[in-house]
Design a protein around this nucleic acid. Sequence first.
DNA 1: CGGTCACTCGAACAACGATCCGGTGGAGGG
DNA 2: CCCTCCACCGGATCGTTGTTCGAGTGACCG
Lengths: 217, 217
Amino acid sequence: MWLRTSSREDRGGPPLSRQRIVEEAVALLDEEGADRLTMRRLAERLGTGSTTLYWHVKTKDDVLDLALDAIFAAVPIPEDQNWRAGVTRLIGDWRATLLRHPWSAALLGRPMLGPNVLARSDFLYAALIGAGVVEPHLTAAAFGLSNYVVGSALMQATWLLNADAETRDAARDHMDHQRDRYPALAAHGPLTATDGWDESFERGLGWLLDGVEATIG
Amino acid sequence: MWLRTSSREDRGGPPLSRQRIVEEAVALLDEEGADRLTMRRLAERLGTGSTTLYWHVKTKDDVLDLALDAIFAAVPIPEDQNWRAGVTRLIGDWRATLLRHPWSAALLGRPMLGPNVLARSDFLYAALIGAGVVEPHLTAAAFGLSNYVVGSALMQATWLLNADAETRDAARDHMDHQRDRYPALAAHGPLTATDGWDESFERGLGWLLDGVEATIG
DNA sequence: CGGTCACTCGAACAACGATCCGGTGGAGGG
DNA sequence: CCCTCCACCGGATCGTTGTTCGAGTGACCG
């Protein structure tokens, strides 16, 4: 009786819910990365048993899908009048969010059908349609912009955030020792110029938008 | 004596080697996908014990890194005189190879430092330099083209190859039931127009190359 | 008061990556 | 011819993972 763990107070915080699981999952992912997310570790942080999570969530993949969609709530849906300004802002914030949660890069290869992602994709299509972009340019524009931001964030997260310092140093040495085999790469490659990611990103984005804009008329 | 498994013949094929492990890993990945690659399954296909693999390879991640680099041997390094034709061909073959091995999409988030990848990246830089592209456009062009092809292959592999039919159908239904919430997306989204990936890809690539070309001179 | 229902969790299972350590056979020197 | 060495092999095993089973527990409703 006196030993019984009385129900609510001694577990941390409010009762368990799908939302609280996802919030804690995002926090855990932010702090320790994708491969350290375990159902047991997640449950421990929530003050519950690991198997309890399966009442609120079907599989671990569900947790990952929910966590991935959750972070996009931080991407504001622009209200610019100018279509190009709005699209630029959306894509930029999209990228910033991906880089703020580097573990997301490893999850981009799964279907993203959460409400936050869909709402922002819908805005992208609507903005392009409003600008007067018509098929077949419309699909190409939406695909191209999405793919560009996903690829950029994936590569930058891989090299600057997920890779530890020793990996980067080893890569640099690896390149130095083969300088004659990859001359152009060694002279101008991403490992020699690790700064300027932002500037390069926006330059490429500008090229894409120039191409889209040229189809209007 | 007669019971002893005489050494070479009864195991399949030539003696074990790092190369043979990688070849079999690629075959296994092609047939069953990334999450079905196990050291035990791989060893079984090679006719050896699972622990033997660790003599030739340090970890499973090494196998994945080697397999990922191996498939890029199938991407020819162009010899076109026209820089734009060469770059277009390289990027197109790069994408085709990624799509021919859909499991590669899930591995793009790791450092790619294999000889095949480096040689082709070096060609890309050399071609752009030869075309007269100078900094800061050079880095932006190389990054942009790489990121674009990676993102495109990642998204297409996610939706058309890795996702099974029921996932796609469920996604379609999911969208249909929320048609009013995402009007633009439902009308023009990727799930309604699953064809035209190739055409959209080349259109976006053209926009990028137009932007790069405009910086020359 | 009795029963239903949402919710919790310890124990257990199968599968995984990886390591330990005892083999085994062929090459090469005495 | 024999002995030694060493590259190479693999059974047993460890710790960890995702997930399931089934037995609980308490709040609420009639």
